[in-house]
Structures are given as C-alpha cells and as structure tokens.
Design a protein around this nucleic acid. Structure first.
Length: 274
DNA sequence: ATGATGTCCTGGGCGC
DNA sequence: TGCGCCCAGGACATCA
C-alpha cells in the first residue's frame, strides 16, 4: 500500500480536486472490498457535498455535509484517480466510480482488494473499531522519545515489528520503517527493550524526517501506487536501503542485506545498523 | 499479553 | 509459451 506519505499526497490532491463537489451518482462494481460496502451505500452518498478531505493513519477521511465521513483505505494496491470523465470501458479493477455534479469522477481502483470504503458518523469515528486502537500520528506531540521508550520497555520483539504496529505509531509501513532504522543506525532485529533513550530520540526524529521528505517528494511510486492526478511520486529514488539487496551501502560500502520479518522483507546494512 | 505465522487477493517477474 | 514459484507501500485472525 501506500504508506503515510502516499496517502497524505493523495489527501492533499483530493482536498483540492473534490472539495465542495456534490455527489451525483455512485457506481459500485462489486458488493465488497476487504469489508462489505454499507447497506444502501449509493443512496447515502448521492446529493452529499464534500466539505474536506483529511487523514488518520492511512485512512482518508472525506467529510460529507450530513455529519458522516466517507472512510477510504487503500490497502496494498488501492488507487484513487480523479478525471474529467469516466473512462469507457472501466478498467478491470475499477470498483467504485463516484460522479460529481460537474461531470468529473473519482475512480477507486484496487487490484488486490485489501482496501475498504465505508461510512462512519462523524461523532463515532474515534470509537469506531477501525480507529479506536490506533496509536498517535508520527507528527503529533504525543509521539516523542519518552512515549516510544515506554512502548518499547517490556518488548522483546524486533524493533522493526514494533514500529510497524499501528497501536504504537500509525502510518509507518514497511519502506519507511526500514529507512528510519537505517538513518538511526539501528538493526531491525534489535529487541525493543534494548533501545536506549538516545536511540529512541533519534528514531522519532528520523521517522518524522523521512516521512516529511517523502511527502515533499509526492510519495514513492513502486508497482501500484499512483497519485490521484496519475503522476508519480519520486521518493523511491532516495531510498537508502529499501529494495537495495546485494547493493552497497551508501555510508560504508557493505552489502545491503534482505531478511524476512513477520513475512515482510526488511532491508538493512549489517555494518551500519547495530 | 506478547510474538510468530497464516490469510485475504491479483498480477508481475523469474527460472526452468 | 507455459508452469510453478516468489514477491508486493496492509491489516487481521489465530496459534503457542
């Protein structure tokens, strides 16, 4: 999936392109994604106006003028495109087409269908099952070295797995966890409870820095991700370790290693990261 | 409770 | 050209 920078890039674009638009029709090409669409989903959207587009973790929150939020998660392969006209024919994995009064359309495309789209009343968002267990946003004041150390102190799991746990901090996926650990010179296999307060401090800074730099680059474009205007992000060119197995470390020249943790690839420099 | 593993799904790329 | 693997920006459920 898009990680936080990719979702944030899409959010910014959508906030410009669909804010104040009124939904004219909704086409659902199937009955579910990762979860079912709400009952009478189309009827609940038609006639509503988009007030804003915000973000929590990797969820896009599209605020409607009826005190409901259209929640969208892109999973691993979800894409949102906004166009002047609906394509004809639709793409194979175009699952939802939302048409606005001016004729423009928002197309939700998701090859693997790990994404979701649902409606949640504004006031119930925090307690909703998708949101209630989420940890702090990485850019929030709550996410600091003291907080992180507290979360790590009794944990023997590898630091990489802990950072990818949304209950600890949200939005930091496979790529940016690897990149942050490299910047902080921390081995991804280090146990959480062995991280010093200096290292925790460094991690918080580097997680924020790498996410911010990626947002400034319009995210990273790999296989599936595309921006809502169809352009690519370009942060992928700035990866220091992700996807660089068997290549040499930009710091020390050692060979970048790929290992598997929780079924996900981890890339790191065994010499720089201890 | 924590940590490790398996699952949802489709498609691209590789070796044979 | 085809087959069988392995791989993929996530999030859960389930097991010991």
């Amino acid at each position: 999936m898009p990680e936080l920078p990719e979702v944030e890039t899409i959010r910014r674009e959508l906030d410009k392109s669909i804010r104040n638009k009124i939904i004219d029709s909704v086409l659902l090409c199937r009955k579910d994604l990762r979860i079912k669409f709400p009952d009478r989903f189309s009827e609940k959207l038609i006639g509503r106006k988009i007030l804003s587009v915000s973000r929590r973790a990797k969820y896009l929150l599209i605020e409607l003028n009826d005190k409901n939020i259209l929640v969208i998660h892109l999973g691993m392969s979800g894409k949102i495109l906004v166009k002047d006209h609906a394509p004809d024919p639709l793409g194979k994995h175009d699952h939802v087409v939302i048409r606005f009064k001016n004729g423009s359309v928002l197309i939700y495309n998701d090859t693997r269908r790990f994404g979701l789209m649902t409606l949640v009343p504004n006031k119930q968002l925090k307690e909703h099952e998708l949101f209630r267990d989420l940890g702090p946003e990485p850019f929030s004041g709550e996410f600091d070295a003291k907080y992180l150390l507290d979360k790590l102190k009794n944990r023997t799991a590898p630091i990489k797995n802990i950072l990818m746990d949304n209950r600890v901090v949200v939005g930091v996926g496979n790529i940016y966890t690897c990149e942050s650990l490299f910047r902080s010179h921390i081995s991804p296999i280090r146990k959480g409870n062995t991280i010093s307060s200096e290292k925790a401090n460094s991690l918080v800074k580097n997680i924020r820095d790498v996410l911010k730099e990626a947002i400034d680059s319009g995210g990273s474009t790999l296989r599936d991700y595309a921006r809502s205007d169809g352009d690519s992000g370009y942060f992928q060119h700035k990866f220091k370790v992700y996807g660089r197995e068997k290549q040499s470390c930009y710091n020390c020249g050692s060979i970048i290693k790929r290992i598997v943790q929780q079924g996900r690839s981890t890339f790191y420099c065994p010499n720089c990261q201890k």
